[in-house]
Computed example of a mutant assay.
Amino acid sequence: MPTIAAYLGAALAEIAGCFAFWAWLRLGRSALWILPGMVSLALFAFLLTRVESAAAGRAYAAYGGVYIAASLAWLWQVESVAPDRWDLLGAVICLTGAAIILYGPRPA
């Protein structure tokens, strides 16, 4: 699985899983929201292992930038709150850092 697809799938799964708990604990939804939330979080963990990286810590660090950008997309699409310019600037900075971590030259 290509790295970008793994990261995007993992981000969607993590955000959806965490949002299920948010809905239950903060929005007063049924505790049954926990079940799909747990499945989604398990999918997140699985997808993150599909990232093409020899080191888990490096894969997780680069994922952080993708997670931040995906969270802002969730904010906009699911919660109907448009990110402001500071959100977008922060996401660009984080994605730049993620790309440097993931694709920077490494000694052989």
Rank of each mutant, 00 (worst) to 15 (best):
L75V: 02
G57D: 09
Y63K: 08
W22T: 10
F21P: 01
A59W: 12
A56V: 14
A5I: 05
R29N: 00
W22Y: 15
V92L: 15
A45N: 10
P83L: 04
A70D: 06
C18D: 01
I34H: 11
A82N: 08
W76L: 05
W22I: 01
A45R: 04
L89H: 10
I100D: 07
L72W: 10
A70V: 08
L32Y: 14
L95G: 05
R85K: 07
T49R: 14
E52I: 04
G104S: 13
L43G: 13
R50M: 15
F21V: 12
A42K: 09
A13E: 03
A55W: 13
G28S: 07
R26T: 02
A61G: 11
S40E: 09
A42C: 13
G28A: 11
A108E: 14
T3V: 02
I101G: 10
I93H: 04
R58L: 11
A56C: 12
I68D: 09
L41R: 10
P2F: 02
A70T: 07
T96M: 06
Y7M: 02
V92G: 05
P105D: 12
W33T: 06
W22D: 00
D84N: 13
G90Y: 12
I100G: 03
L89C: 11
W86Q: 13
D84M: 03
V66M: 12
D87F: 10
V39S: 11
G65F: 00
L43F: 11
L41H: 10
I68N: 07
G97H: 06
L35H: 05
V66P: 06
S40H: 07
A54S: 15
I101C: 11
G28Q: 04
A59S: 11
L72Y: 14
L12W: 02
S53A: 15
Y103A: 13
V81L: 13
P83A: 07
M1E: 02
W74E: 03
I4Q: 04
E52G: 07
Y7T: 00
G9A: 02
P83E: 12
G57W: 06
A98M: 02
